[in-house]
Structures are given as structure tokens and as C-alpha cells.
Amino acid sequence: MSTTGSSAQAANAETDAAGPKGSAVVPVRARLGRLFAAPIMIWLALTIALPLGYCIWISLTNANTMGGTPRFVGLANYVTVLTDGTVGGPFLRSLAWAIGGAIIQTLLAAGAALLLNRRFAGQHIARTWIMASWVVPTIVTAFLWRWMLNADFGVVNHVLQSLGLIGRPIDFLGDPDFAFITVTLVNAWRWFPFMTLLILAALTRVAPEYYEAARVEGATSWQVFTRVTLPFIQPVLYVVGLLGTLWSINVFDIIWLTTKGGPLDMTETMPVAIYERAFQQFRLGEASAMSVSLALFLLVFAYCFIRFVPRGATEQEVI
């Protein structure tokens, strides 16, 4: 990709950096803009807003998952779930899950992107290759790791034992000391390649001239990274930081398919707790109150993020 005209890239970078926010508005295209935004907005209204409204209503009733006529109970469910002491654990775990995941994935992805943003034999293959863990279904990922980490016949324990690193096999997904970090890593393994791609996307827009100039001025590697590279990937890190956190907190499938929230609730994050309350304790009203509360929390998070986190140059035009 970086093979074609570097001047074009420099031009891009300039456009981005300048930020067309203040540039002349073309009034005729305002109509077009609204028209083009309409289909997706209507689509989302029908598939997100409508069910969401229904969900909020349910959260104000004593609905049972298995039926019966729900009765309006006001905010009782919210009081129950916020005060009965069962939500604190899952909430903290969700925070740890999101923060831990963000750190691990960002480090892995930034490192991988820097490595892949070089010209070397097979760079195209390498860039496609690392996407493999992102393109396979979660259920395959879950099965693959459950099996490789199996304490009885899993290859990981086998290798660790043959190397003499451990005595008894470790039950990575069943031991309370290991389960949380193991699932966090499995989830990172699944998602960091995609993040790598996004960072790589930003990196390829850094024109070689910038590095050239920095080197001429005698900048150290670290200075090059912080003054040239980082500003370019900051906008991506910004959106990834926002969306990645939302995605990450809402992750359910990989946890459910590997540990079901166990052992001893060590991997019971908010979505798992919501699921259990709705489909194992059958308290649909309370489960809805939990998910609406979680969504509210995430909205506040998103607001604060957008308000206070520096977004970097190129995104100025949009947010």
C-alpha cells in the first residue's frame, strides 16, 4: 500500500491535519447529506431504538422471563439490583475486563502494527495472516482454546510439562486463580489483530518525509515515536478506545462459551450476570433494569470520553 505515490499521502495528511472544520460549507449538499443519512438512521431506529424502548418498559415491571402478566413496579427493580449487593462484583469485573483488555490489546496491536508497517518479503501475506483469529467464529475460538488449554489432554499443558515449567497440569479455565486472565488473553487473541489493522491503517498515512525530517533533526527513536507516529495513530486510538471499550464491556459469547462465568464467579462480568438473571433466575424485569443501568453507564462513559479525551487531529472534522 505504501508503494504508491508518497506525495499523495503527504497531501492526505495535510488535508487531515488542516481539518476542514472551518472550510467553506457547501450548502447544496446539506440536503443530500440528510437524505443519505436517512436510511441507516431509520434502520437503527427500528432495530435498536424500538426494542430499547420496550426493554426500558420491561425494566419498570415485575416481568418473569417465563411469562405471566407484567405489573408496573416503578423503579423497584433498579433499587433491587443496585442495592442487593449482587451487581458490585460483576461490575468491577467488567471494569477490570475492559481496562485489562484495553491495555493488553493496545500494546499488542501497536507493537504488531509497527512491525507490519515495514517493507519486507511477504508483508501482504503477513498482514492477511494475522487477521485469521478475527475472521473465525467465536465458537471456533472458544472450542479451540478450551481444547488446547484442557488440563487433561491439552497441548499447552503438555508442552509446559515437557519443558519442566510446571509440575501438575494447570486448569487454565477452571482454576479461580487463572480463569479471568486466561479468558482476557483469549479475548485479546481474538481481537488484537483487528485493532492492529486499524492502527496500521493510520500508520500507512504517515508520509516517509516526516520520518526523514525527524531524522535530519537528530530525533531519537522515542522522539520519532511520540512526535511523529503517535499523533498519526492518536485519532484511531481515540475511536478504538471508545468503541473498543463499549464492545469489550458487552462481550458475552467468548466468556459464556469458555467458562460460563465460573469458576466461583471469577469471570462473571455484567453481561453474564444479566444473562443469568434473565434466563436462569427468570427475573426479566430485574435483568432489564441491570442492562438499562449498564447502558446508561456506558453512555455516560462515552460522553465523558468524547468530552475530555483528546481526539487527535484528523477526527476533528467529525466529532
Binding site: A37, I40, L50, P51, C55, L242, L243, F252, I274, S291
Partner: peptide, 22 residues
């Protein structure tokens, strides 16, 4: 326009589980 853009991101606030029953 900014609202449209934000709404596109806000979609990801809502977990799929939440929307399942409705």
C-alpha cells in the same frame, strides 16, 4: 451531522442480550 455520527457509535452501547427478548 455530528449527531448522526455519534448515533452511529452509540449503537455499540447496547449489548445484544439486552435486545434479545424485545
Amino acid at each position: 451531522r455530528q449527531t448522526v455520527y455519534l448515533l452511529l457509535l452509540v449503537v455499540y452501547v447496547f449489548p445484544g442480550i439486552l435486545l434479545l427478548a424485545p
